[in-house]
Write a protein that binds this DNA or RNA. Structure first.
Lengths: 304, 304
DNA sequence: GAAACCGTCAACGAATCGTTGACATGATGC
DNA sequence: GCATCATGTCAACGATTCGTTGACGGTTTC
């Protein structure tokens, strides 16, 4: 049997308290998890789980195994990492996380060329708007918007994202064009449901903040949906330019309140974050190079 | 690919400085070792060996990997051991070492019944007259003759082996029967080639030692060969009773110098030695029980 | 110079692995 | 209270992998 996957699987079963949950996170079937655990118990000669009703509990032997297995798996990981750092060819699996919208529109298109340039490299792109845990989620590189870079990770600024307040011409013709922040009170202001975004913060050219408690009758937790709704003329939204630059150029969307800059709680700088242990990983280096080459000095959509 | 075997294989390759040597100790083909190492290098993205002329050398990355891998493998081993200690069923592989003659005649016959009693147990019997290294050779239980038990291992006395000076009646009729130690100088004294055994030490009933510088024109490093030679009437030898008790009872061999007891450099007590970490291993317990049940209070060949 | 040994590669047969589908059981929800 | 869902386990089938075999080029040794 395969030791490492089985041990890793056991750790996940122990954490989740369920074989089915472990199977889901591992992306395999329950049958496989069950068989691996049975095989593990057979080879160790000890019951690892107390199969009571619906919920598995670790036996004392199972708990001992879990602690030892964690140490062993950590040793294996550190070995891989150390040697991969010394290698010169990017290989293995690179796990990148990014926010849903930015990842889909700006990161995903980069993957094919990076993968094509390095035949032994596999890339996983994890899209989520949660703040991922680099070690817990086993992320090699997290693309994250934040005001202050985390202190337990290396953070390198990749790009500044500009945001604009915009709407469809059709909408503006029907509802009027807001000329100052407080005019937004009369509009459908489509906003993201997560975070503190029932208030829009607009900053004028002299740095004066205006906080507008905007309202809307529809909400999304997905910027693409907001984008679609804005294009369809259902309201005004704050959109990043990477998303709407084509529509702005083509006139399908128009910016409003151009003298103001929207201020987002997590800032406008996007950072690449990774643990210090991975600084020299070739696979990380090549991906970082691809990112920097693509977004610096200016991202494609900001170039004239 | 299978991590643990590949890593273990790599460590052996690094130790032996040769893939073929590792293949021999692992009992597999060179092709397999070669493929595993190639796969390892591919997955780690680093060259591990410097393929120069005939002899492999570790690259810096290979050396780093070796050290980390050793730690990881040790963690894996300790995990297995800890959990197996907590289990209740004897399972896995039990590696027993013994001296060639005693192992063949007294230990090997016990294996079938122990294996039959515990279906999930596999037993390996390593016969060698070298003093094995419990951890280096990965021996669970070593049956070893020694005067002073090792201090880094648990040693349990299994049996005392009696030895006798004996020869074939035919030989004694031709060459005469020695009546005192110094008579041995006129005889062919077949002795083991290893160790300090060109001198026989005989102790009389009052504890007085007589050292006899014996001679022989043929030598063996295998007691069975000595035994055969003695039976064929080629000389006198010191033989353990477990080997010759049938012939003594049947008259095919006769003891001489019955008033003296041969003194062997490594003593007459046979110990079962194992590392303290394995004290509670079920598979070790059942084997130890089988040994004790078979050899105590008296071994079969000493019972009337 | 020949023989032996080494690491590597390609091809074939076999054993293992993973998926699928089904079942019994025990929670969960209306 | 009953239907539904989820969980752990098992058997069977298909695919992928694994290990062996045999051969080759290169290097060391006798």
């Amino acid at each position: 049997m395969n030791w490492l996957p089985a041990w890793d699987c056991f750790v996940r079963v122990a954490e989740g308290g369920s074989m089915a949950a472990a199977a889901r996170t591992l992306g395999c079937t329950r049958a496989q998890v069950s068989k691996q655990m049975a095989e593990l118990e057979r080879r160790l000669g000890a019951r690892l789980f107390e199969r009571s009703s619906r919920r598995l509990a670790l036996t004392p032997a199972g708990e001992v195994f879990r602690q030892h297995a964690l140490r062993a798996l950590e040793a294996v990981d550190s070995t891989e990492l150390a040697v991969r750092n010394l290698g010169d060819r990017p290989c293995g699996t690179l796990r990148v996380s990014a926010t849903v919208a930015f990842g889909r529109h700006c990161v995903a298109p980069l993957l094919p060329e990076v993968a094509a340039a390095h035949p032994e490299l596999e890339i996983e792109l994890i899209l989520t708007d949660r703040v991922v845990d680099l070690v817990g989620d086993n992320i090699d590189l997290a693309l994250r918007m934040t005001r202050l870079p985390p202190d337990d990770a290396v953070a390198r600024r990749i790009v500044s994202l500009r945001r604009v307040v915009c709407a469809a011409p059709d909408y503006l013709a029907r509802r009027g064009r807001p000329c100052q922040p407080l005019d937004l009170l009369q509009h459908q202001c489509l906003s993201y449901v997560l975070g503190d975004n029932k208030r829009w913060v607009l900053i004028d050219g002299e740095g004066v903040e205006t906080v507008v408690p905007v309202r809307s009758r529809i909400h999304f937790n997905n910027i693409d949906c907001i984008f679609d709704a804005v294009r369809a003329g259902h309201g005004i939204a704050i959109l990043p330019t990477y998303l709407c630059h084509r529509e702005l150029a083509a006139g399908a969307l128009q910016t409003v309140l151009d003298d103001y800059e929207p201020d987002i709680v997590f800032g406008r700088d996007l950072y690449a974050c990774y643990t210090p242990s991975r600084v020299r990983l070739p696979k990380l280096r090549v991906f970082l190079d691809a990112l920097l080459g693509h977004f610096q000095p200016l991202p494609p959509w900001e170039r004239i």
